[in-house]
Design a protein around this nucleic acid. Structure first.
Lengths: 112, 112
DNA sequence: CTCATTATTGGTAATTTTGTCAAATATGCA
DNA sequence: TGCATATTTGACAAAATTACCAATAATGAG
């Protein structure tokens, strides 16, 4: 793998890494319905506000969400909704994994 | 966020986390064209074989790839090609980020 | 101005991830 | 059987991630 190619994979990975956390996935889905301020998201998530704020800054830094200040609040919104199309595939993977686990379980039972 | 919901986000995140590494993204794309053994992938990537093997086991564990033994070799293949559809969106994010950086740069120049 | 509200940042400890080396395993061949 | 090849695993150090608390901005209301 040459250097330019590797750089491109690093760039891609950094964006995917920004999504790779339960809280941040939740935020992405929550913003699908419209913009939200940090306070609202914090209530929904049920964690320390500083924690949520840091998650938001990771998503913002990756270019997945954007923000807009209004009064003392900061409203975040989804910048690239195509991200959402990905969730369907993730669900497929989860489903396939569960199906496979089910088969393993069945063959264990059959062996008795 | 209730417990069941949180669990689902954890499950999703664990799969995305498995993708969140340059080497593992490379593997996913490499397997798009067909199955590959560890040796081949190691050559393509240019890292220690033990490192590549561990990356493969992470992807396999997440249910993204599967393996098949043949002689002394182990061939890996993509289990869920829908993953690939995601890369387009990632590229969009990268492009949008670069465009934005370009604008910032331009406005800096204009200010002089 | 002072206070309450909203949000971000710095410090820190616990946990996780990553890469490499060495050792262990498995397979096919002479 | 003994050996070479292919792969995985364990140990371990370095680096990154994460969550919380406390401290620091920034804004609007009284």
């Amino acid at each position: 793998m040459n250097d330019a190619t590797r750089k491109q994979y690093v760039a891609r990975a950094s964006i995917i890494k920004a999504m790779a956390h339960p809280t941040r996935l939740f935020v992405i889905e929550a913003l699908e319905k419209g913009e939200r301020c940090v306070n609202d998201l914090t209530d929904m998530i049920g964690a320390d506000m500083s924690t949520v704020s840091k998650h938001l800054s990771i998503l913002k830094n990756a270019g997945i969400i954007g923000d807009k200040k209004s009064g003392t609040s900061v409203f975040y919104h989804l910048k690239t909704p195509c991200i959402l199309g990905f969730f369907g595939c993730i669900e497929d993977v989860i489903e396939s994994n569960m199906r496979q686990q089910g088969e393993v379980l069945k063959s264990c039972k059959a062996r008795r």
